[in-house]
Simulated scan of single mutants.
Amino acid sequence: MTIRSITTSLLATSLLLGLAACKGPEAQQARQDAAQAADSAGVAAREAVDQAAAATREARDEAAVASRQAAADTQHALDRAADASAAAARDTRAAARDAAAGASDATADAAQNVANKAREVADDAKRNADEHNH
């Protein structure tokens, strides 16, 4: 039940009880007073409903603004996260290239060391062979 229908029912009941209790010359004045009170109560009830509706609309509008702001904030956060992820991917690719280059350099250095050692061994073997042949 709405506020308006509850208020109207209470006012009608009060009015009927008031009218039933009145007898004699004061009854007319009591009826007029009751009618005026009912009208005032109806106006007050309409104003209360209108104020509640206005407050509801205002709360709805504020919630919509807050929701839009939250969506914008979320979008900004997602954009920053995407940018950070892209930067991390670039850094990872660069680090992987550097690591691969470092591994290639290390492999080349190791191969050179092996070749140098092989040359030394070959030179020693040739010297030994020359010494034994003389």
Rank of each mutant, 00 (worst) to 15 (best):
A89Q: 09
D98S: 10
A87H: 05
D109Q: 12
A96L: 12
A110F: 02
A12D: 12
R80G: 01
D98Q: 13
Q75E: 09
E120G: 00
G18P: 01
A44V: 03
R68M: 12
A94I: 07
E120H: 09
S104P: 01
K23H: 11
G102Q: 09
V43S: 08
A87T: 05
D109Y: 00
A118S: 13
M1W: 02
A129M: 09
S14K: 05
A100H: 04
D123I: 03
R80W: 02
K117C: 03
A86K: 07
L17A: 13
A110E: 06
D124M: 12
G24S: 02
A45R: 01
L16P: 00
A77C: 02
R90Q: 14
A99S: 12
R60Y: 06
S67G: 04
R90P: 00
R46C: 05
L19K: 00
C22R: 07
M1C: 03
A108Q: 11
D61N: 14
E62V: 06
N113W: 03
A122N: 13
V49T: 05
D124G: 06
N133D: 10
A99P: 02
Q29Y: 05
E62P: 01
H134T: 04
A125S: 11
A110S: 10
V121W: 03
N133Q: 10
K126M: 06
A84E: 15
D83T: 06
R80I: 02
L19R: 01
R57T: 15
A72K: 09
R31K: 11
D91V: 01
R31C: 07
V114T: 13
R127W: 04
H132I: 06
D130L: 08
A34I: 00
A84L: 12
Q51G: 07
Q51E: 15
H132S: 08
R93H: 07
L11F: 03
D73I: 01
Q75A: 15
Q36E: 12
A35D: 10
A44M: 05
V114R: 15
S40F: 07
I3C: 00
A71C: 04
N116T: 03
D105M: 09
A87D: 02
A77Q: 13
A125T: 13
S85L: 14
D79G: 01
N133S: 13
A53F: 05
E47L: 15
S40G: 12
T74E: 13
A70D: 09
A110H: 05
A53Y: 04
A37H: 03
T13D: 14
E131N: 06
V43F: 06
L78C: 04
R90S: 13
D39N: 11
D91W: 03
E26S: 08
S9I: 02
R4K: 10
Q28N: 06
E26L: 12
V43L: 11
A81G: 03
Q112H: 13
H132C: 00
A129S: 14
R68I: 04
C22A: 15
A59T: 07
A94C: 05
A37S: 09
E62L: 14
A21M: 11
D91F: 00
A21Y: 07
I3Q: 08
D105C: 06
A86C: 06
R57F: 08
R57L: 15
V43Q: 15
A77G: 04
C22W: 08
L15E: 15
I6G: 01
P25N: 07
A66D: 08
